[in-house]
Amino acid sequence: MRQADTAFESASGNRRAPRLTAYLLLTPLLVWVMAFVVAPALIILVYSFGERQVLGGVTLGFSLRSWARVGDPIYLAILWRSVEYAGITTLICLVVGYPVAFVVGRASERHRPLLLTLVMIPFWTSFLIRTYAWVTILKSEGLLNSLLLQLSWISEPIEMMYTPFAVIIGLVYTFVPFMILPIYGSVEKLDASLIEAALDLGAGPWRAFWKVILPLTRPGISAGVLLVFVPALGLYAVNDILGGGRVDMIGNVIENQFKGTARNWPFGAALGTALLGAFALAFWLTRRPGRADRAAG
């Protein structure tokens, strides 16, 4: 990809030093981030050093009690499990979602918005109703089991509800659009002639995909991975309804500190801060300045 590399080089060479106007234009974003991201994050950080109050809430102070618990192997194990689930979900979403994004992105211009909206519409129902519909499908006397029995593919119902399988199905279902949409944005701008050229030069479809299409859509993929993996890490409602809450995710544990009888806000805040910190660090390291996800573009 010599050509793309030069394009990138000149692109980054073209990034200007901001003048006053550019700073002014950035102000809304800056203000928003300071007010509604940084300020709440600081509140949580301060809370994590406080002491628990009877009714919930925090007595401010400097106590390391909550932080001492964060490193407990129980919670590390729970965090690791969440990472595993989020990772598997992201991988399946990518494999399942990429071809869809490709088809939608290469469809005729007239149909693209329609197809895109069709992908999203199912999610305009309430999460709860959707997930209960999955229960109806997956339960032991449910639709899927009835169908399989009818077809004589199985002789007795398979247990699907309240298993990791059900949780993964639910997670993939919830997140696959967030993989499809950003990849669509990258596929859509692919130059058809580029693909044809690759094919003309004798590359098979597979090689053309691997050598031309995939590298060109990498920014979309990394955006999709970000938009699926990160929220999947904190989600626990799917786990509760389809998994029966048998294993805790890190989201469950944090939630319990605020909404469970423990009412231990400082510990919840400490766990939350740790999660934020880990994410910020990982993000910081993977987005090397200048290059990052722009590289292969």
Binding site: R246, D248, T261, A262, R263
Partner: peptide, 14 residues
């Protein structure tokens, strides 16, 4: 004591 209950339960459940 609610905090201890929560911790015990989370631990055993995990």
């Amino acid at each position: 004591t609610a905090v201890e209950i929560d911790e015990l339960f989370t631990d055993v459940k995990a």
